[in-house]
């Protein structure tokens, strides 16, 4: 009989110890190297940011339909020229209107009423079947979230005077570089390329000064502070 303490298996275990130690050391070295050595994040500088929007949940608007504005229209201004004649008296329950010279066609009246009711009912809101109930746009694409937010914030303040001539509007463009602090504050900006039109450049300055950005993602904070974020303003 072979003693278990001195058997071949025990002997084999003893011989394995150096191998196990070497393996553990190699693993530790690899882990340490992995922990200490962090390569910089790879940023594709050729990639153009895409504005991200929340798509409204809903049925797709048929392509054959005419476009609808997303915003409510301005309220109609009252007529500036009053209709001549005496001021209308407030109606009284007993008052009866004067008979019309001709009797209106009842069918036409009914059709007109239906048409008016249909037209004045709330318009359908179109979106995307996979959209969000909080969505505000009828279509959208995915993209870089921070850059989309920055674009959105700048665009909210990108207001130009209507007096800019149509000819100028066709060609005006300028590039501004923003220095962004880790908390999102724009600590400075400079024109990399001016438009040459004072009214346009002044408006860009105002837009940048009024803009509040969210804090950049951690991996981009140093870059946006030291290198800056370029903004191409165009029509």
């Amino acid at each position: 009989m072979v003693d278990a303490a001195t058997g071949p298996l025990f002997l084999r275990r003893e011989r394995l110890w150096p191998v196990v130690l070497a393996s553990a050391a190699a693993h530790a070295a690899i882990l340490a190297w992995g922990a200490l050595h962090r390569p910089p994040p790879i940023v594709d500088l050729e990639q153009k940011p895409i504005v991200a929007k929340l798509v409204r949940l809903g049925e797709k608007r048929p392509e054959a339909f005419l476009p609808r504005k997303e915003e409510a229209p301005p309220p109609a201004a009252p007529a500036t020229v009053p209709i001549p004649g005496p001021a209308a008296k407030p109606p009284t329950p007993a008052a009866r209107s004067a008979p019309a010279p001709t009797r209106p066609d009842p069918l036409a009246s009914a059709m007109n009423r239906i048409r008016r009711e249909q037209a004045l009912s709330a318009p359908p809101r179109y979106g995307d079947p996979s959209g969000s109930p909080e969505g505000e746009a009828s279509d959208a694409e995915e993209g870089d979230r921070y850059l989309a937010l920055a674009t959105q914030a700048l665009k909210a303040n990108y207001r130009l005077p209507s007096t800019l001539s149509e000819k100028d509007r066709m060609f005006l463009k300028a590039t501004v570089v923003l220095s962004i602090e880790p908390d999102g504050h724009i600590s400075g900006f400079r024109f990399e390329q001016r438009s040459g039109n004072a009214a346009f450049d002044d408006a860009l300055e105002r837009a940048v000064r009024q803009t509040r950005l969210p804090p950049p993602p951690p991996e981009m904070r140093e870059r946006y502070r030291s290198v800056g974020l370029g903004v191409h303003f165009h029509m």
């Binding site: 500088l45 674009t151 990108y158 207001r159 130009l160 974020l229 903004v231 303003f233 165009h234 029509m235």
Partner: peptide, 13 residues
């Protein structure tokens, strides 16, 4: 290395 974004379609006031 600087990133650029495009901001267009201004509002005219």
């Amino acid at each position: 290395q600087r990133q650029y974004i495009d901001v267009g379609s201004p509002d005219f006031h």
